[in-house]
Design a binder for these strands. Structure first.
Lengths: 246, 246
DNA sequence: TGATGAATAGACCGGCGGTCGGTATAATAG
DNA sequence: CTATTATACCGACCGCCGGTCTATTCATCA
């Protein structure tokens, strides 16, 4: 193979891009390092020049995800016109609706991230995301406590519960995709819709708010997300944006 | 090697025993099949006679765990003198205290299960356990709704939240063990203690109970669990009970 | 221009999960 | 008491994996 030298940052991003695509389509365990370097058009040596191990690659990928996710809600965090409750609601609505709107890769990413072989990948991303979002949530909750909007305690703990509720959808969605049939999907949608309502009430009560204050998503939005695939046919999962050499 | 034939059920249990010990001590990924069959004193062919793959072995192990866990709380489930709240409290207290009392393997199992390399193993066990425990919890919650003790809805959802709270301790505990230092451990203990109090209140409110109804564990019990190691020095994790051939 | 180090290449390695043809033992039938 | 079949078991072998290592090429700058 001819020797091709690129700007290190670009090369690194390319490796992450192709790793992301392959990890999502085949799973972290099943996608081999050889696959990644073949897709990226790079030698073993080059790869290990950038990443210490396959594990480190996963870690870097998770961090990049988390960074992007946080950037995606930055305007909500900066908006001075929002009170704590409004900010919390906006945050939850956005972090979920983002899955529909940043099409068409979004669905593919969404679907593949919940496949059972991606448990490790999912967990890493979630861990990194939690580390980014937790302080933000804590700050909002603290502010809500100060101005009397919320009546609760242990802001860190409450923040964790909020994120937990987000993560908890994992197994339900995973089961929907595992089954694969339309019936399984239908059951999952209804379960999720019901679960979202429960989470809203649960958060209301945990935060000491009147029922109906927290709005994660209006009724029907779960179906909108889960059936978005038909409108957004994305064959390839999270294809790299840059020119690859396949 | 001489050919040794054992009762198939015994052989299968032996394989599970040694797999359990190795998976817990070294993690599912890092413990190789060769390690398992070497520990069990069995050939590759024999192994694949009993399990279709390493994955299937993990699955069987998780199911055995779940079965044992359910058996451990059977008397609580059968006790006719308990009302829904009492049964729920007893269930949560037991499933946590079991970790102290069924010494000395308990601590080792507890500690190793939360090591980062055991994420997959942990998730499998939790999935299997959830499948066993969910119907039981749902039944208790339904009963509590019928007799007016609880005021909530979506029993399946609430049951999931209950189990979620149990699982949620994973990352906190994992971090404690990851750090390794006494300071990290101390922080984790205090965080957990606080978190348990929060979960109690959260469950109270979700179930529509007066604050203080749910008692997951009395104050100080987290420290009791986490420091039990000193009283229960268990070098080897979950050593097999049957005679191996090492 | 020559030297230095970052970037790249790819042969190589031990060990992995898994397969397969074969063998010894147990169970069953005649 | 055989002959036959089914089951339990053995271990050599396979393709591929993640990771290492040495060699080479290219950019940089004294």
């Amino acid at each position: 193979m001819p020797r091709i030298i690129k700007h290190p940052e670009l090369r690194r991003e390319e490796l992450l891009d192709h790793a992301q695509a392959l990890f999502l389509t085949h799973g972290y365990d099943r996608a081999s390092l050889n696959d990644v370097i073949a897709a990226a058009g790079v030698s073993k040596g080059a790869f290990y020049h950038y990443f210490a191990s396959k594990e480190a690659l996963l870690e870097a990928l998770a961090e990049r995800f988390a960074r992007q996710a946080l950037a995606g809600v930055q305007k909500i965090l900066d908006d001075p016109n929002l009170d704590p409750l409004g900010r919390l609601n906006a945050l939850m609505a956005t972090s979920r609706q983002a899955k529909i709107e940043t099409a068409p890769e979004a669905w593919a990413l969404f679907e593949t991230l919940f496949r059972p072989e991606n448990l490790v990948l999912f967990h890493r991303i979630n861990l990194a995301a939690s580390k980014s979002f937790s302080p933000v949530l804590v700050q909002i909750i603290r502010q809500g406590l100060d101005d009397g909007t919320f009546r609760t305690f242990d802001p860190e703990g409450v923040a964790d519960i909020v994120m937990q509720f987000g993560t908890a959808t994992y197994d339900i969605i995973a089961k929907a995709f595992a089954g694969g049939s339309d019936a399984d999907m239908e059951i999952a949608i209804e379960t999720l819709e019901k679960r979202v309502r429960l989470y809203e009430i649960a958060l209301d009560r945990i935060l000491g708010l009147p029922d109906g204050s927290i709005r994660i998503g209006e009724p029907g939005y779960v179906r909108a997300v889960m059936t978005a695939r038909r409108d957004n046919p994305a064959e390839t999962a999270a294809a790299p944006k840059r020119a690859g050499r396949d």
